[in-house]
Nucleic acid binder design. Structure first.
Lengths: 225, 225
DNA sequence: GGCCTGTAAGTGAGTGCTCACTTACTTCGC
DNA sequence: GCGAAGTAAGTGAGCACTCACTTACAGGCC
């Protein structure tokens, strides 16, 4: 038969690996948006551009697909040693260290807001991989920063107090703004994000470090009449 | 037919109001635990101790029940002016004010951990009442604290900076620990909660207030070698 | 080139099950 | 004995998942 006008313009035929990748990408978006239970396989299949049967050629069940995604996230995000952070850490430059840390956390969530939602859903729904994420990502982050704080306390730069509390305080400051944005869509930092971030880190450092008598601190600190 | 042995010992017969209340209580627990989509009406009915039909005599649909619950939360939590907080506010006693505030937030979530989960689910699932909760609860809280911070800045007690940022910083510090507990089950504050809370508030105040000359720390400082 | 063929990619029309919700009936307290 | 509180047994819709089948393409052969 001669090729009459193709009514279906793009029925791409991909090899298994590519198709699998596309399914995972699409599923990440959908699951992050509507949750595991809120996403139907038909919906997912349509979004991918194939039929449901194709999904089941690549993943034995919906749950297996979900786990594959979470596993990938846990694995992908495993390690990303940042150079600037590393250098600030070695120098013991607290300001640079925490500024960079804040930036990294914020950047990460701005680039991939879906991941936080995905993890939140997983945690609420009690999926065991959320716990794994907690241990691999959050605890690891905590350990790293805790070690730094501990060292700086020993060096007399930071006030002596439970280092984990200090890390929690810092993380909370940053996390709060990320959280509000992702969960309620409220952008509390506003336009001049970096300036706000600097003030935030400054507040934190003033709060946790030992007093420095010579610092230019007059009653009126800066800006904004 | 004669009444053979009653296999069901306690088939309580309640009036409409009581039954309604029990349904709502049970639903709060279940929805908080497994989310709206994750909870079936059969499950809910069994937990209440009746059949599904009874639910539908009191609420026209599952969604209506959900909205009734969220509405109740929004209404219940509307106003709770705390006396200690009020007094600290009037005196301009920053330490007392923020300590009390921290305590209130933590207490609230410890007493009713279900509510936060409920709101989180609602927010993730995009329910409009989550937005309502945000406006009625969170923004109201923000406004109240923001006004206090602004006043204290004008009085020269606190550093001049965006008051909303200050509120966000404080809220984040507290919220982080609540969040970690509720979402990941991680109790980062440990046993001596109150002592940790005091340190947290102290860090916050050191960070945001103008320097007080009489508070000296000697420890020489560090800085880049 | 043109043609056959084995195989992997993809489809459409289901299957059984669980869900939210309903209907016809029974029981109890006043 | 009447009305409200409660039940048992559904109903159709939508879900995850399957099956019998078709299509596209690589590569060997002439």
């Amino acid at each position: 038969m001669s090729t009459h006008l193709q009514a279906v313009p793009k029925r791409e035929r991909l090899d298994a690996e590519q198709r699998r990748a596309r399914i995972v990408e699409t599923a990440i978006q959908l699951f992050a948006d509507k949750g595991f239970r809120g996403t139907t396989t038909r919906e997912l299949a349509t979004a991918v551009g194939v039929t449901e049967a194709v999904l089941y050629q690549h993943f034995p069940s919906k749950r297996d697909l979900y786990e594959a995604i979470l596993q990938r996230i846990v694995r992908t995000e495993e390690t990303h040693p940042d150079e600037l952070l590393q250098r600030a850490c070695e120098r013991g430059d607290d300001l640079a260290f925490f500024k960079r840390l804040a930036q990294l956390v914020l950047d990460w969530h701005e680039q991939t807001p879906a991941l936080l939602r995905l993890v939140l859903y997983a945690a609420l729904e009690g999926h065991e991989l959320a716990q794994l994420f907690f241990e691999r990502q959050i605890l690891r982050y905590y350990d790293m920063v805790t070690r730094y704080v501990q060292r700086r306390q020993n060096e007399g730069a930071l006030r002596r107090m439970d280092p984990k509390l200090v890390v929690g305080i810092f993380t909370g400051m940053i996390g709060h703004f990320v959280f509000m944005k992702v969960v309620f869509g409220a952008d509390l930092l506003g336009a001049n994000r970096d300036a706000q971030l600097n003030r935030l880190v400054s507040v934190f450092l003033e709060g946790v470090r030992t007093q420095v008598p010579n610092r230019r601190k007059k009653y009126t600190t800066r800006r904004k009449a």
